[in-house]
Computed example of a mutant assay.
Amino acid sequence: MTRLIYNTATTLDGYLADDSDSLEWLFAVPGAAEAESSFPAFLEGIGAMVMGSTTYEWVYAHEGLAEHPERWRSAYGERFVLVLTSRALPVPAGAGVRLFSGAVREAWAELESAAAGRDVWVVGGGDVVGQFADAGLLDEIRVSIAPATLGSGKPLLPRVLGSDRLTLESVRQSGQFAELVYAVGRPA
């Protein structure tokens, strides 16, 4: 059964990115390479991905995809990626990226089909994940907490999810990061 998984890193005070949508704080954390060592195994179980336009635009710019579209495949392979956006965005040549404007519930059937029995990774951002949680489609949150604070920025998950919906499944240390995995129950 295809699950929808939010896998991300956050600061200790719960921010994904700073006020300028930058992730530079993440790259400055010592031991980040060790924390990423389990990522290839996670990615093997992913058949499709979904992200919001801000996350997509950051990846597009950060990876220099306008000049080097091949970098998309080296990072994400042949996976189908749905970008939730209300505007036209550039798409790297040869990438399986589709722009989508609409409710996440409408996108789910396409994501599930593209995943072909594997899981769907919600890359970000927090509001996109919140929309899936609101729709009762989010199954798991995997969050790696970094030893850094920002004071403000883009929140991890700008929604209220009570303890009645979140069940801690595992905790592990990976370098300087603490990885928490929560199962997410359906809304009442």
Score class of each variant (00 low, 15 high):
89 L>Q: 12
133 A>D: 15
64 G>M: 02
129 V>E: 08
97 V>W: 00
103 A>F: 06
161 L>Y: 01
151 G>Q: 05
55 T>Q: 15
144 S>H: 07
63 E>P: 04
155 P>T: 03
100 F>M: 09
36 E>W: 15
95 A>Q: 04
84 L>V: 12
95 A>G: 04
140 E>H: 00
30 P>I: 10
70 E>P: 11
84 L>W: 01
160 V>S: 08
140 E>D: 01
97 V>G: 01
110 E>S: 14
109 A>S: 07
156 L>E: 02
126 G>W: 00
114 A>P: 06
129 V>L: 11
83 V>C: 13
100 F>Y: 10
142 R>D: 09
46 I>F: 07
28 A>E: 13
138 L>S: 00
105 R>W: 05
110 E>C: 11
102 G>Q: 00
45 G>L: 12
56 Y>C: 08
145 I>E: 00
145 I>P: 03
65 L>M: 15
29 V>G: 10
67 E>C: 04
100 F>S: 08
148 A>V: 09
129 V>M: 14
162 G>D: 02
128 V>P: 09
138 L>I: 01
123 V>H: 06
79 R>T: 13
142 R>S: 09
34 E>M: 08
61 A>N: 10
99 L>Y: 08
93 A>W: 02
124 G>Y: 06
70 E>S: 11
100 F>D: 06
131 Q>V: 05
104 V>E: 01
79 R>S: 14
61 A>G: 11
43 L>Q: 15
35 A>N: 15
48 A>P: 10
42 F>A: 06
159 R>C: 05
76 Y>N: 15
161 L>W: 05
74 S>K: 14
90 P>S: 03
116 A>L: 05
163 S>W: 05
46 I>M: 14
57 E>V: 11
30 P>V: 09
121 W>H: 11
41 A>Y: 04
126 G>P: 07
31 G>H: 00
108 W>S: 12
32 A>N: 14
55 T>K: 14
57 E>P: 05
137 L>H: 11
111 L>M: 07
145 I>Q: 00
101 S>P: 04
79 R>Y: 11
74 S>V: 14
146 A>K: 00
100 F>A: 07
86 S>N: 13
145 I>R: 00
153 G>N: 04
117 G>E: 01
151 G>K: 05
131 Q>R: 13
43 L>C: 11
149 T>F: 11
159 R>K: 10
80 F>L: 12
142 R>Y: 01
148 A>W: 00
56 Y>N: 11
94 G>I: 10
88 A>M: 05
99 L>M: 09
140 E>K: 00
162 G>M: 02
93 A>Q: 14
108 W>K: 12
110 E>L: 12
64 G>T: 06
134 D>I: 01
90 P>N: 02
63 E>I: 03
78 E>D: 15
31 G>Q: 01
42 F>C: 09
87 R>M: 07
118 R>P: 09
54 T>C: 08
93 A>C: 07
113 S>C: 12
120 V>T: 13
113 S>F: 02
85 T>A: 12
70 E>M: 07
42 F>M: 08
154 K>G: 00
39 F>D: 13
123 V>T: 08
138 L>A: 02
91 V>S: 07
42 F>D: 02
127 D>Y: 10
82 L>P: 10
70 E>C: 09
49 M>N: 11
126 G>H: 04
96 G>S: 14
162 G>F: 00
